[in-house]
Nucleic acid binder design. Structure first.
Lengths: 244, 244
DNA sequence: CGAGTCGTTGATATCTTTCAATCCCTGTGG
DNA sequence: CCACAGGGATTGAAAGATATCAACGACTCG
């Protein structure tokens, strides 16, 4: 693990730029800034380990971090992808419990690391901060439940269809496009599939004309059919699985 | 859905008895009580439906409630079992979002139903309440992540072993016993297995002498071996699967 | 240009689901 | 007191879907 402390002068400026801190009281920000530092983590750098106490609250300034649970077969189950402006660690710090996941950088990343003591103290003092944090943790919980929903789908095609439809914009359009937010490996690990299976399912959907895939660029051609797949009782009702 | 409003006089008394409200300011409790009612829900009664806005914050006085996501094959994925003194709905109400699960009573149950408007208002006002709620939601998030960990295990034996070891008491003892908290059907649905598979795995572990099973009463004979199973890279390393 | 990572594709084994029948326990009613 | 109904749990046999192992192709970076 490599953590390079950067100039402390940048901290308040950085905090003011991050949407994460929007609406936080100035005094709180000032006090947190005193217990904060900017760190750099190289690709594959370890931020936190499952079972250990988290040493900071982290807010991602740039880069990408994956949170995952290691599995016996040398595999991982990704429980969240932390993007720019996202944070990690609130719930562990609030409960003062061991971290339930590994946190590793997917790319070279910069983070704001806030001292847990200072953070907890402010949390007890300031009700706005408590409210904002409650919102954030609630949002994480809802996302985790949605992930559970995806992984609960029986067939791999349903899991992938379910995942893809997450990107449907509001107001809903039947066709839309987007970029996969990480390596397909990591996406697969988030869906509870092997990368091979994900690859097969995606090319299958492509061949069926339901999506078009160019690398990480996915364009959904027929969102309606994808949604139908999601709620299909029996895969045999369509010819979707003949290809396997 | 049947909801029988009971005597309002019982509400403050009931609230004072529930551990859930321990440490909440008296004024807050009083104001919440005004917007609360006691309800009865029969076995299989529906408390909340996925996709609909939750109409109350619920605290379970007695009985048992399961939260689940319906799956295409007429199956369910149980995301939580709500026991006496547990609550449901904080995160939805905080975010004012649709409920991500169905909530149905496993047995005849009694609940305290708190008005969401009143609850949200108090949440914004009182920092102790905000703090307690933050703790509660954080705990739910951690539990959900642990559930994810269980379901991420590749083999059914590992999933069950992982689940059983959750009941290991602290300080850790290698042998211990406990009662399954719900029907095996629902346990299976929580582990992402069919009830048949769960049944088979349990009798397998029983035959191996790792556990003893008498109905819902489970006694773990060899917690060490169970833990080993959990972290085994390759099932073939042991003879565990010969029975299947 | 070579190394390495990532993604794709193929063939095979296997484990879980599925469907079905049976058993067990409990509560109920004659 | 016994018979019976119903839900829940168990067990069996079969089919199918995904993991696994392996090889190859594409792309990036040094």
């Amino acid at each position: 693990m490599t953590k390079l402390p950067l100039s402390f002068a940048l901290i308040p400026e950085t905090m003011s730029r991050l949407a994460y801190f929007d609406g936080w009281p100035t005094e709180v920000l000032d006090r947190l800034a005193l217990g904060a530092k900017l760190i750099s983590v190289p690709k594959n750098g370890v931020l936190a380990s499952k079972g250990e106490v988290l040493d900071h609250l982290y807010v991602l300034v740039s880069g990408l971090v994956r949170l995952y649970i290691p599995l016996p077969n040398n595999m991982e189950r990704v429980v969240a992808l932390v993007h720019q402006g996202d944070s990690l660690g609130e719930s562990c710090l609030v409960l003062n419990e061991a971290c339930p996941f590994h946190a590793v950088a997917c790319k070279d990343s910069h983070l704001l690391a806030i001292d847990p003591m200072v953070y907890r103290r402010e949390l007890g003092r300031d009700s706005v901060l408590a409210g904002k944090t409650l919102e954030r943790v609630s949002r994480r919980l809802m996302e985790t439940l949605r992930d559970t929903e995806i992984c609960a789908q029986r067939s791999s095609v349903q899991r992938v269809a379910c995942y893809l439809m997450r990107y449907q914009p509001t107001p809903k359009t039947t066709a839309f496009k987007f970029q996969l937010p990480a390596r397909k490996q990591d996406i697969a690990a988030k869906l509870g599939l092997t990368q091979e299976t994900l690859s097969r399912v995606l090319s299958f959907l492509d061949k069926q004309g339901l999506i078009q895939m160019h690398g990480a660029q996915i364009s959904i051609e027929d969102g309606t059919k994808l949604t139908e797949i999601t709620s299909m009782r029996d895969p045999k009702e369509s010819e979707q699985n003949v290809a396997f």
